[in-house]
Design a protein around this nucleic acid. Structure first.
Length: 404
RNA sequence: GGUGGGGUGACCGAGUGGCUAAUGGUAGCAGACUGUAAAUCUGCCGGGCUUUGCCCUACGUAGGUUCGAAUCCUACCCCCACCA
């Protein structure tokens, strides 16, 4: 369990297979984001058909609604969502950044004022581990302190050092929770859910939800190479991990700076665990990241842009609402094999946006997710064949930097 | 036929003497979005130009009053309501 088998490399680019309790993930791979336990607008079966191998959910948001007790009472995230494959929960650390106006941070943890009902919620490393354990994803993320891309050395250092201290607390809490479960003290409810048939036929977890979960650390340090190195050092000192995430990127810093951080880290990262670049990215970011040794990505842009009417194409991107698509009988992306592109003409997709039907949002989201999943598949095939470098250069040239 | 109300930019609809090329909204067009407070947000939206500004055309039509009119007056055309 949690084994990562490196199958091929080309330069820094890697192809591998990650084994998780709910299945395998062949990398490089894009992970669609399902913050609230749903990849916005898409059903679990639809997401399966995009070829997605693993999806995210969010600790903070599921804690607010419906509450981790409700999810675990239904048998855990997999039963709750009917998503049968691997899942990963983000820790709520990103909300330290994205909900900046609604939180107060201290050494103990973070006090949030709920954007839903205004109540005060405190998230600490320990609480985040408890919630994530109850949610029962294959992978739990450490609770980290994300600072903006423009953060000074001083602020980035503070966030990075705090993330290391919190990592220690996360590890201890996570281990304690695992021990508790091993004693059989928790989660009779899961068994009950299985017996009641709450778990659908498509959900056949290879293990009981919550029984087996990895904790992955998150590197911080902003845009400062010395802090990034220190973050990695400190993280490796604090344990041996089955995966390592790179956080705090694509939060406002220029793209070359992000690439620089990846290049700084790459030679020092352990080879035998997957590297997960959090929150990235756009299509070109995937290829740029893969070229710099990243194995896993996640990003809300596929679904958010989809809802907002921007579709990714090999040649850049297109505004589906645009007048240019009026009356067009062409497929959205002639090279794509998704249901949207093999079924509906551009002129109809545009119409759906014009009349504000929810189907349009769904169909373009579906395409964008498939687009990134497929990009990961293609990259993997080329790494295995030793042709990644040339292929990705050509792909990026054609993609033209637009929308990247 | 009579009385009353009304005709404003693609549409709806404010505006009752100068701050009005004309508030709002809709439609239209363009752009943004990176571990989701986002089916959201931003910009443009009479025409032209040598575009921090200038010129033309515009508030049913035609005249008039006034330094100045979408706004006041007159006539006409059209629409709506009620009465005959």
């Amino acid at each position: 369990m949690f084994e990562f088998r490196l199958e091929a490399t080309e330069g820094a680019a890697r192809a591998g297979t990650l084994t998780l309790p709910h299945g395998e993930v062949r990398t490089p791979a894009f992970m669609p984001v399902g913050t609230h336990g749903v990849v916005r607008g898409l059903g679990a079966r639809e997401v399966e058909r995009t070829g997605a191998q693993i999806i995210l959910a969010n600790t903070y948001h599921l804690h607010l609604r419906p509450g981790e007790d409700v999810v675990s009472g239904m048998g855990g995230l997999h039963a709750f969502t009917t998503w049968p494959r691997p899942m990963l929960t983000d820790s709520g650390g990103f909300q330290v950044f994205s909900l900046e106006g609604l939180r107060r941070i201290s050494e103990e943890g973070v006090q949030f004022q709920s954007h839903v009902d205004g109540t005060t919620r405190t998230l600490t490393p320990e609480r985040s581990m408890e919630i994530q354990r109850a949610l029962g994803a294959d992978i739990a993320m450490a609770f980290d302190h994300v600072v903006p891309g423009q953060a000074s050395h001083e602020l980035a250092c503070e966030g990075m050092e705090r993330t290391l201290r919190w990592l220690e607390r996360c590890r201890i809490a996570h281990e304690a929770l695992a021990d508790g479960q091993a004693d059989g003290r928790t989660d009779g409810r899961t068994e009950a859910a299985h017996r009641r048939g709450v778990l659908s036929l498509s959900v056949r977890p290879s293990v009981r939800p919550s029984a087996c979960q990895a904790l992955w650390p998150i590197l911080q340090g902003g845009t400062h190479p010395d802090l990034r190195r220190r973050s990695l050092e400190g993280t490796l000192e604090r344990g041996s991990w089955t995966g390592i995430a790179i956080g705090g990127l694509s939060v406002g810093e220029p793209k070359p700076v992000m690439h620089g951080v990846l290049e700084t880290l790459e030679p020092a990262l352990p080879r035998d665990v997957p590297r997960y670049l959090m929150g990235v990215g756009f299509p070109a970011d995937l290829l740029e990241g893969i070229a710099r040794g990243v194995d896993l990505f996640d990003c809300v842009a596929a679904t958010r842009n989809g809802r907002h009417g921007t579709a990714w194409l090999p040649t850049g991107r297109i505004n589906v609402r645009g007048a240019a698509l009026k009356g067009s009988t062409e497929p959205l992306d002639p090279e794509c094999d998704c249901e949207t592109c093999t079924t509906y003409p551009r002129g109809y997709l545009r119409h759906l946006f014009v009349v504000e039907d929810m189907l349009g949002l769904r169909l373009v989201s579906l395409h964008n997710v498939r687009f990134l999943v497929r990009l990961g598949e293609q990259a993997r095939a080329h790494i295995l064949a030793g042709t990644f470098d040339g292929w990705s250069r050509e792909w990026l040239r054609r993609h033209h930097g637009r929308g990247t």
